[in-house]
Write a protein that binds this DNA or RNA. Structure first.
Lengths: 248, 248
DNA sequence: CTTGACCTTGACGTAACGTCAACCTTTATC
DNA sequence: GATAAAGGTTGACGTTACGTCAAGGTCAAG
């Protein structure tokens, strides 16, 4: 069997322009080219084309696809790879759906959605890679399970407690207190207790973990924002460090 | 609270260039612009930015997003729309996963995947809109349920029967038989019986349906390809028409 | 006063095609 | 055999949502 360029395009659900593009890129050359320059394609071309379009729908770039097609001699393994990517995409989608449902519920409960909350909600899934890189894969998975295990009410409650703690930090700082003041040290106590309550928090080397975290509050604007900016974050960091040293 | 362009970019997980782009496009103007031209953003900006990025992840274009944000005063309804789109995407993904799993199973059963099969597999979902337009929504849904109701084995079996019929048509044509020959008429009988066996086939106006279908075999390359090209399709059409007229 | 981080406005680059334009073949029809 | 319709070819420029310099102004810290 042999098809013209438009025929095979319709067969595969694409356009002739795409076919010419793939020809230019060396991704899919016609099985035959007539003396008049017309392109003709056969069954093998069709299969290859299907696979290309398959990968394209996944968002893979043409160079990547070329690599895949060249390296993968086995159809099954290629499809298994494909399947894995699809499942990963599905997971992500499910998460996004859960996130949106969550925010809708919050709204339905009549409580206004505040900017920080919105950010925190997304934060939890958005920085996955970063969290994994910094504290290991288990840490993220564990913390994620814990978070999802809570009811929306519990989640809200938890976030409000965090918000309160943050606000207290900011007030203390704005009140001109010093990091070693009794008030700041009390906040440090609360802060540490709060951190301990999060599953995934390392039990060994806890002191080093806290020190690193405190440093990050300052250096990462996303965290610093929670404490009213870099200045506030520095205040929190100092208070925490003093608290930890007192223990030692 | 007020953030600089990089701060808010990091907060939302994007880049400063994107922010400037959105400013240019009038999608998100800074809450304040300093005398030096610096852009500053506040909490409301952050929320709006989050929403923009949300929609962007869905693949919506910036003009569309602008429309949505202008029309939607209600947060909840916007998110509900959003949710619907997400769920639709999820359905599609699940279908693709099922399709890939199906082909993998076929391969695992050791049976070679032939080009036509692959095409048929995709065909069934790919041309949905077209089928619906031509024969009504019920027809597609009905036929789809029927197809999915079959086990992989049954599906394979059914496709092999179709393949045999098609090959017989091609042989008959290549053998130089005429559409009104006894052999061709016998094939027409089988063909019509086969069509009747497909749920969704109209019972009323069956003759007209057959005539239209026969015409389509010729005019649509995707169908013609099954009969060895337009020429073969013409042969099938003529045989079918003769068969139907004989009944009348 | 320099250094380095951050900001600005152009302006060109990119990916995967869509969409003409200008022109040649093939096929069907008068 | 003329002619139009349908389909083919190769350029070449347009599109979207930014990325990525380039060239230069601003600002806090040492």
């Amino acid at each position: 069997m042999e098809w013209s360029i438009q025929q095979i395009a319709k067969l595969a659900g694409t356009t002739s322009r795409t076919l010419r593009h793939y020809d230019e890129q060396g991704l899919l050359t016609p099985s035959r080219v007539g003396a008049n320059g017309y392109r003709y394609y056969d069954g093998k071309s069709l299969v290859r084309l299907q696979r290309i379009l398959l990968f394209r729908e996944l968002g893979l770039g043409l160079p990547q696809i070329r690599e895949l097609l060249e390296r993968e001699t086995d159809e099954t393994s290629a499809l298994l790879t494909h399947l894995e990517v699809l499942r990963h995409e599905k997971d992500q989608l499910n998460r996004r759906i859960a996130a949106v449902e969550h925010t809708i519920n919050s709204l339905k409960e009549g409580k206004q959605l505040m900017a920080e909350e919105m950010f925190d909600g997304f934060d939890h899934t958005k920085y996955r890679d970063e969290v994994e890189e910094r504290w290991g894969k288990d840490a993220y998975a564990q913390s994620d399970r814990w978070w999802r295990g809570m009811s929306p009410d519990e989640q809200k409650n938890w976030m409000e407690r965090v918000g309160q703690l943050n606000r207290d930090w900011i007030s203390a700082h704005e009140a001109g207190l010093t990091p070693d003041s009794a008030e700041a040290q009390e906040l440090a106590d609360r802060h540490i207790a709060w951190l301990r309550s999060i599953p995934g928090t390392p039990r060994t080397e806890f002191a080093g973990y806290i020190a690193g975290l405190a440093e990050m509050y300052v250096s990462d604007e996303r965290f610093a924002a929670n404490y009213g900016g870099q200045d506030g974050a520095r205040f929190v960091r100092d208070a925490l460090n003093i608290r930890m040293n007192r223990d030692a």
